[in-house]
Design a protein around this nucleic acid. Structure first.
Lengths: 247, 247
DNA sequence: TAACTCAAAAACGTCGACATTATTGCTTCC
DNA sequence: GGAAGCAATAATGTCGACGTTTTTGAGTTA
């Protein structure tokens, strides 16, 4: 057993309490890459709070690596604006604010609108099929929400995201999809922080179901104007629910 | 004199041949930050060619730092998709392709459209004034292009960019402007590589002048549809000139 | 009590060294 | 002559150590 996989196992076992880390990392990755995904997850899920100082000793203990891979991972999160840095004062989790949340969600709505608009122009049969497939999987998993444990919500959320990603993928623009993904991650941080305080009720999800069907109809009809309008509303809905509650 | 500024001076003096590096770095930055801007510049300007292997020994010599700051800087360029990495095989300059160029330019046109559209909605008097000021500076500097030395072209290009940034800034969305900046950098790599091979002729710039005036008129008239159309054409024009030439 | 000083402790950023992995080049064998 | 094996070389990724800077906190003074 080589060092990396050995170390990897240790990580999984020492994942202290709060966050069960995904073991889905290929040992072909280096430490920096492995730490990146875990650290990102820890920030997005709120294990490290907004504005919290990220002390190296703590990070070294948690992820069982030296400072070099840590600083590489943190450097990447810096570009993604999930951490901030001040010379000689180390790294800090990027603070949150109502203003940033509004900006992210609105920008995300615009970007998603671009994706959908182009997807309608460019999407082919395979695109339509993948949407219907993802929609089917999502609908079938609605039962996950009956028992609203964090794990089930996470699983449903993953399927939900896959559904919307299937739609956006039709735009066939790696650059645009890259931007989209980055914004999704930033937004999901706010969503997760909100989830930690407020349990979600089922009604919002049923509204979701209807919106999804309307969206699919507009997509298959290649009705760009309606589809863009629907997807933007679909994204801004959660925002409106979030923004008035205390973070 | 501390180590950083001492080292900094050495950098400026040892800037081998091709690229005169900007000395505009505060000594409050750490090595990683300083290396980042220089390395990015070297990639954008083509000192390091697309697909070229970035060997650590070479980078250490060029920037006079150890591997730690280098890997941090490269990690950031990784997120910005200016380099790629393969485990145990180090970093490589991100390759270029006609497909990527098309994707970047088209996405950029869409993003710039969003910026302009929102700027027209949100822009105030100060916004209008800053546009006119930047336009004035740009027009006054047209003489820079009479002698088309690389330095003059660079200076004109900076003013040109400031003009368009002044317009986009009206959207008042940090997130959107962040995306915009990232795409500008990626696109400028293609433009720079093109400039290395083809000297530009003056006619394209005069066409530019007229487009700028039309754009300003549309902005001040708050004619969103025209303005978005104009800015997108303005961005795609250079793309069309570039795409048919050999890279 | 509040502000200030300053020494001790903690934390940061960088380098050099080392183990591991990839690459090169030479030799051997078909 | 060309493929295959293998040793030598080179390059990568990570850690521990070190100098520097920031933070802490106890003691002093107003």
């Amino acid at each position: 057993m080589d060092r990396i996989s050995g170390r990897r196992t240790e990580w999984n076992m020492t994942a202290h309490a709060n966050t069960p880390h995904t073991p889905n990392t290929h040992s072909s990755d280096n430490y920096a890459t492995q730490v990146l995904s875990q650290l990102k997850q820890d920030i997005l899920t709120g294990y490290f709070s907004p504005g919290e100082k990220l002390r190296m000793v703590r990070l070294k203990e948690r992820y069982q690596v030296g400072v070099s891979p840590l600083r590489e991972a943190l450097s990447q999160l810096l570009v993604e604006q999930l951490v901030i840095v001040e010379n000689q004062r180390g790294f800090t989790v990027h603070p949150i604010s109502a203003e940033e949340m509004a900006d992210i969600y609105h920008t995300r709505a615009q970007i998603e609108g671009l994706c959908v608009g182009q997807a309608i122009e460019r999407g082919d049969d395979a695109w339509e099929a993948s949407i219907l497939a993802a929609a089917h999987r999502l609908k079938k998993s609605a039962e996950l929400l009956d028992e609203n444990s964090p794990e089930n919500i996470q699983r449903w959320e993953a399927l939900h995201q896959e559904f919307h990603t299937a739609i956006a993928a039709g735009c066939a623009s790696p650059t645009l999809l890259h931007v989209r993904r980055s914004l999704y991650e930033k937004a999901s941080r706010y969503r997760n922080l909100w989830l930690k305080r407020n349990m979600l009720n089922r009604t919002v999800f049923h509204a979701n179901q209807q919106q999804h069907q309307d969206l699919i109809d507009a997509l298959l009809a290649r009705d760009s104007e309606s589809a863009v309008q629907l997807i933007q509303e679909h994204l801004l809905g959660p925002y409106r629910a979030l923004k008035d509650t205390q973070l």
